[in-house]
Amino acid sequence: MDEKIIKKANCGQNEKADCQITISPANSIIIEIQSKVKSLFGKSIERSVKEILEDNKIQNAKVIVNDFGALDWVIRARLECAIQRAKGRKNEK
């Protein structure tokens, strides 16, 4: 069953090697990335975000990644936690 983002949630801290992820309800997948290394790693961050959303069966959500030099697995961990904090079953209010 598809999971639904029912509220806005954050995860991660404004610290070196970390990132802050904000996820909120939307009608499609919208990904915004703020990172000093966006020109180099922007595509790779976007790909990881899409993979995690897919793994978690999220079809609609707005994800903002504010990156402070996080490694790929850190971004994945923070996003997965943000999803857990924001989601509910489709028939839930």
Binding site: C11, G12, L71, D72, W73, V74, R76, A77, R78, E80, C81, Q84, R85
Partner: peptide
């Protein structure tokens, strides 16, 4: 606590 559990999971898998 939830954020740390996810981070530790990915640390075990990737580091």
């Amino acid at each position: 606590k939830d954020a740390a559990r996810f981070l530790v999971k990915y640390t075990l898998q990737n580091v």
